[in-house]
Design a protein around this nucleic acid. Structure first.
Lengths: 228, 228
DNA sequence: GAGTGCAATTGATAAACATCAATCGAGGCG
DNA sequence: CGCCTCGATTGATGTTTATCAATTGCACTC
């Protein structure tokens, strides 16, 4: 592990408040591995072997079914993923693959379940993490059910703009085809959705998007009132 | 509380394994209330006052946004709802209303959060409940993104048939308009979806649905491989 | 047992979205 | 530099879903 990385992982909400001794147990049983781009980390249906913590790179979680695939989440560093499968010891509902070369901390699932049992603060953090993940999913589902495609895109841009510092500018981290899948539409329709938003102050230049008229965009997409 | 009801609530996975003493604290601070049909219990955006446990009746959780509503879940007895908002003490993401006259146990949210802190088994049960709820949401979202309307209906019928005893018969508990909203479609399209499924062995007579040819139906809708 | 109210259904039409087929354009390589 | 590859875009068309408008059918009332 590189200098500075371990503190960064340890300061994640999930690991922050647990006993030092228990955290040591978790980390000592884990190993950091580097994966090339486009590598499948695991597939849905498998029993969870490891809790994954993305340290560097980019990972896609996707689900297959009815003969098609759809992107469920793009994981950015530093954050953990597939916690729910690990604590319940039930099969993954999603598959994962690296998008870019990625450094991932692999924590044996059995160790997580064991430490959860014994460290109260860690269980508390796990509970909260799951509650927040649940809320994210509720929002994603209502978004899909209530909004049409251009509105979903506009909303995502507004959220990303905030998360990236509120500078009126958004940098798209993944390919547009992936963004389309995440938003539940085709790449073709994503292009057209950008076209629709152009009339509302959204300028796009490759992966750089500028929100010139936040007011107009918000009027169009009616963003979520509750954002955590 | 009626005789037999308290044991039934106490035997829920959420409350089953906790210390008797702590469970007593939860129940003694709670009260059971009867609500008439069509009554709004709470609205999204509010701070959570109570964990709700539906003892008898039927409750709809729905979300509003972009000028429309959509049903997120139909709660059947005996089960709790809005646990995630209660443990995080963050605003409800959904509203709730009774569909029929309902008896609901109201547990003060602050008491839940307090007991969660002190009772390890209760925190464990809460964590698991949230993990399962998260998984349900993942399935709901993939269903919405990957399948079209008739397939979603077929899938729901297959699941309900299993949950109702595998007799080849499904009893629809709610109005079809509600079922349509739950499935993310209009009532008109739900009717047409039943029409499509009729060619695959689905006979419908009011709220009673018969699955005459499970094989054919499964071939059409390609049900989820992983069902918990 | 006729009337009333409302959900469910059916049909016609429109909007949203997907698919198919080129074409464009930027990065990588000989 | 020119060529190649592949993602992004654009246009044409088809499918799915929503909307609008009756009509049907069932439960409830009087």
């Amino acid at each position: 592990m590189r200098p500075g990385e371990r503190p960064e992982i340890a300061s994640l909400p999930l690991f922050r408040d647990m006993q030092d001794e228990q955290r040591d147990r978790i980390f000592s049983g884990s190993f950091l591995q580097v994966f090339p781009p486009q590598l499948t980390l695991f597939e849905q249906g498998q029993r969870p072997d490891f809790l994954h913590v993305l340290v560097d790179g980019l990972v896609e979680l996707y689900a297959s079914g009815a003969g098609r695939d759809t992107t469920m989440r793009v994981v950015e560093p530093v954050s953990s993923f597939i916690l729910a499968a690990v604590v319940t010891d039930m099969p993954y509902l999603m598959s994962a693959r690296t998008l870019t070369s990625s450094r991932i901390l692999l924590v044996p699932a059995a160790k997580i379940r064991e430490v959860v049992r014994h460290d109260h603060a860690f269980m508390d953090a796990t509970m909260r993490e799951l509650a927040m993940a649940y809320r994210d999913m509720v929002r994603a589902l209502t978004d899909m059910k209530l909004r049409q495609s251009a509105e979903r895109l506009g909303n995502l841009l507004l959220q990303q703009e905030q998360r990236q510092g509120g500078t009126g500018t958004v940098k798209l981290r993944a390919e547009k085809r992936l963004l389309a899948s995440l938003l539940g539409m085709t790449p073709e329709n994503l292009s057209r959705a950008f076209g629709v938003l152009a009339a509302h102050g959204v300028r796009t230049d490759g992966a750089n998007v500028t929100l010139a008229d936040r007011e107009a965009l918000e009027a169009l997409v009616r963003p979520d009132a509750i954002s955590d």
